[in-house]
């Protein structure tokens, strides 16, 4: 078994696609209408087109808002993305206006930071020891 796809709930799929591709740098993989205004919308890492997909899932279910509000209030991210250099990404993304709820923090061999994806979620970026 392997992790093939995981999802984050997003307030607005068009806005999410912009943020996850133009700002974070992922690449769109599938964009299929699935009824109403909803789309089956996934992105992948630019250097791993066959890798794990991230589904940008509509946040319409009534359970989503209280769940996410509680997580965001406590600063808890819903996903972690690997980057080569957390500090460099922090500088780059801050320059693009991205809001961080946790600045880069070195904890032993791991460095992390937490950002707001503007679609209702906090995302952790991390540099793991090689």
């Amino acid at each position: 078994m392997k992790i093939h796809l995981t999802s984050v709930f997003v307030d607005d799929q068009a806005k999410a696609l912009h943020f996850y591709t133009e700002i974070l740098g992922f690449v769109k993989k599938y964009d299929v209408p699935v009824g109403g205004n909803d789309r089956w919308l996934t992105v992948v890492s630019a250097d791993e087109p066959g890798g794990t997909e991230l589904l940008l899932e509509p946040a319409g279910h009534p359970a989503v808002k209280p769940y996410r509000d509680a997580l965001v209030a406590d600063g808890i991210p819903v996903a972690q993305f690997a980057v080569d250099d957390v500090r460099a990404e922090f500088e780059r993304l801050s320059g693009l206006g991205v809001r961080f709820t946790q600045d880069p923090l070195e904890m032993g061999p791991v460095t992390t930071a937490v950002l707001d994806d503007t679609c209702g979620n906090l995302i952790q970026i991390a540099t793991q020891p090689q």
Binding site: D74, I76, T101, Q102, L105, V110, V114
Partner: peptide, 17 residues
């Protein structure tokens, strides 16, 4: 060391550091 931390950051510091 740094004022203005979320609960998540405080928990991270306590567990990781």
């Amino acid at each position: 060391e740094k004022s203005g931390q979320t609960l998540f950051e405080i928990c991270s510091r306590l567990s990781m550091k």
